[in-house]
Design a protein around this nucleic acid. Structure first.
Lengths: 474, 474
DNA sequence: TGAATAGTGTCTCTAAGACAATATGCA
DNA sequence: TGCATATTGTCTTAGAGACACTATTCA
């Protein structure tokens, strides 16, 4: 494998001598077309930012930025997406690479465009980054040779001119957006969005791309609405039902759909690829896992611990403690509220196919007295064992394991494996979040809690304000 | 429109001061996956080059190169394609942009990959460029979790490992080629080809992409074979016929298909987008156009002139002169051969919807005697007028127009418009091509004649060798 | 003449589409 | 209760698929 080139150099020698040329090299950026459904499912919305700097100052543009020299375009897009929306684990697909030499007047910039799709149902505010004066969601209307971006303040309209060009033997019809309003989008971003909308319209027909625009649980009428908006055509409900039936699983619940009146059955998308993972569930490290949290309130620290535990346990029991406490400074949120919240959050998350249950548990009346810890441990153990119907489980505890060990008698410790994942940010963060909620700093909270909670933050803050009772000392 | 930024600069001022940063910028290349059908339509073939330089020296790779600072990626791909295959007017589609930071050990290189599709039926040799030791067509086998590139000399095999990764709510199955033979392709080109093959497989189902892999005229059985190879599945001939019937027009001829025995009807793809152009044919500049050429042999100079004329005439008559001369040094090719060749070439070309006919015309017995030019002109005129059934036409003549004017009497000149397109490379090139054919320098000839003739070059050379008779003086 | 393929006629079966009928919660 | 929508049942029609049969050429 030590081949030499025409100069007699091996690859190692060649690379040691190699210097990248001094000739002009283009800069490379990523831009993202971030799409979601409007709340009433009447159309899609695209996230645009208002440019703060030259060139194209004050124009609306797709969010994006330069690729760092050490990251791939995909990684750059993920990073930008997180900066812009706070979201990760989102559908992200490379769309097209724009390379006209004069597309940016500063210098040669090649732009790799991505499509990102967000599920509806979170209160997803638009955040203006460093490079933007403003960030807003625009309703997208794409029909009848027209393309329109609009919100309460601005309306940017294009008409679509059909251009035909020969590509090999076939003639390709290409639509070019022609600005017909005062404002237009920056650079060639109109062209990117048009291209992206057509890609999605195509993919709607023959892939499951629509499932990326709905939350984990949805009704068929809502899904149909999404499909109709994506594909740009009407579909008979019966036909639609039959077509997607095989990809859905009913949850034997119903809820009122966004578009309808009568409650409709709630479904979840069956990821056929995921199903195979369920079959290998038996190969997981532990059978039963248990996590204890007060969830005052629940946050990403808890979620990450649960996800990690779910990935190594077949069954996972999430115990919400202090069930008997509410409306106190340290335990402001009532237990029903906490339980529902955790259940809903977990429904939205990927839990590696684990069978996850949520239970509540009151405090041992003497929990704070150091001499009664063993009683607390036994109370905890027997409630858990009773709930899961087995003696043995793995207890996930992220504080000093010695503390938890001390809870249990030697007999119980034969059945309980204490597992520490090495994160101790959990209690700290709950306090932190309560502080931020006091200060009404909802934007910061958003970064610390699961998506599902975003729409409830103000309500959480209100409950917190009303909680005036003192806790037991501790 | 003179908005200022945070520094109080207008866009003009900003750009005047702007300097591209000194930070590391990636280099950008284009690579092309050039595909065609194998002669027997049993599989596709991909064009690969053997790398001459480090890194990945001696490995087989996709042809490509750096983007010049003044050209778009598409233009760069066209340029590379022309350098590599001599072809223009070929299906070319952006595939994917590869951006792993470590994909090239020299430096950060971002690669924009393209797909190019060539019709079968030309003898399309692979030419090694500056950066290659060799260039070859490889048979592509893509089935049953295997991907294989093979020709007489080399076989490069991959098995496809299925990798699943979550993209939003859906889990995407992604195949990764794993090398299972001694050789592997350079860089991530295996991944690019796999991606491209899957793109084409998808597009085969719901677009007319297959028409880019067949010549202008083809039989349905051959087209079916192409479709089956592209889509990777068998199709019932009846079903296939019915599905594509609307896109084809029969030419009321038959020819033996590549895969079959009984002659099959010859069809042409109806480009629905092109049809609209035919409707506006009446708006063309001239009604009848006439071009005179000896076609000894036909070449790109003639073709370009015909194309130009076709774009401005509703009807175009191509007159092949010296019909009575063959096997002489200056007129080596027999008239039947020349006529068939021109007809076949024109069938393959896009002639702007003009109605193009080819006729032959003997020389006026005294053409070389200057005093008989008017007789030659009248002979020429009446033959043409008789053929097209009208008195008036536009005569395309690329030598000094005075010469052609002198052919015709004043009466005839009332009906003949002489049009000079300003190219005079025509006679020169025919002589040049005959010289090159003598020298058996077929590669150079390929650049100068239409694609359709490429497979006949050796036969042309042979006829030329056999032509020993002297011409009339001139 | 027979092998091999081109091309058509006809039947079956499934899925798409249209429409009617019934179910159900909410105002 | 009645409106609006969810959901299912049934009929029609179009197309996919299967298969048999005829046509045509080459060996």
């Amino acid at each position: 494998m030590n081949k030499v080139d025409v100069n007699g150099l091996t690859e190692r020698e060649f690379l040691a001598e190699y210097k990248p040329g001094d000739y002009d090299r283009p800069s490379v950026t990523v831009d993202m077309m971030v799409l979601r459904m409007k709340e009433d499912l009447s159309c899609m919305q695209v996230l645009l930012i208002k440019r703060k700097a030259h060139p194209e100052i004050d124009k609306w543009a797709l969010p994006g930025g330069f690729i760092n020299i050490k990251e791939s375009a995909y990684e750059a897009a993920c990073r930008e997406l997180k900066e812009e929306t706070g979201l990760t684990d989102i559908y992200l697909e490379q769309l097209y690479t724009m390379s006209q030499p004069d597309r940016d007047p500063r210098m040669r910039i090649i732009d790799i465009a991505y499509i990102a799709l967000l599920p509806y149902g979170y209160e997803q505010s638009a955040v203006a980054g460093d490079d933007a004066k403003d960030a807003r969601w625009f309703d997208v209307k794409f029909a009848d040779e027209k393309l329109e971006f609009a919100n309460d303040l601005i309306k940017i309209e294009y008409s679509l001119r059909s251009e035909k060009f020969k590509n090999g033997v076939i003639t390709v019809e290409n639509f070019v957006p022609v600005s017909v309003s005062d404002e237009k989008l920056a650079f060639d971003h109109d062209q990117i969005i048009l291209e992206g909308l057509m890609r999605i319209r195509n993919k709607a027909e023959y892939t499951g791309i629509m499932f990326n625009l709905v939350p984990r649980e949805f009704t068929i009428p809502d899904l149909l609405k999404v499909f109709e908006v994506l594909s740009g055509k009407e579909v008979h409900p019966k036909v639609f039902r039959e077509k997607i039936a095989g990809q859905l699983v009913s949850l034997d619940r119903s809820q009122r759909p966004i578009v309808g009146r009568k409650p409709a059955a709630v479904y979840r998308y069956v990821d056929l690829n995921m199903d195979e993972r369920k079959l290998v569930k038996v190969h997981k490290k532990y059978k039963n896992g248990v996590i204890l949290t007060r969830a005052q309130p629940f946050h990403n620290g808890h979620l990450n611990m649960i996800k990690q535990a779910a990935s190594e346990c077949e069954n996972l029991l999430v115990v919400i403690g202090s069930a008997n406490k509410s409306y106190t400074k340290r335990n402001p949120f009532p237990i029903e509220y906490r339980k529902r919240l955790v259940e809903n959050v977990l429904q939205e998350e990927d839990l590696s196919g684990a069978d996850v249950k949520v239970m509540t548990l009151s405090d041992w009346s003497m929990e704070d007295a150091a001499q009664y810890v063993k009683e607390w441990g036994s109370f905890f153990y027997y409630n858990i064992a009773n709930e899961i119907g087995e003696k043995s489980f793995t207890f996930y505890y992220n504080d000093d394991p010695k503390i938890a060990e001390n809870w249990f008698t030697d007999d119980i410790l034969k059945n309980v494996t204490i597992r520490n994942l090495g994160r101790s940010d959990i209690e700290i963060s709950s306090t932190m979040i309560r502080d931020l909620l006091y200060k009404k700093d909802y934007d910061k909270v958003r970064d610390l809690v699961p998506r599902w909670m975003w729409k409830d933050l103000k309500q959480l803050g209100k409950i917190l304000m009303d909680a005036t009772n003192d806790d037991y000392m501790m």
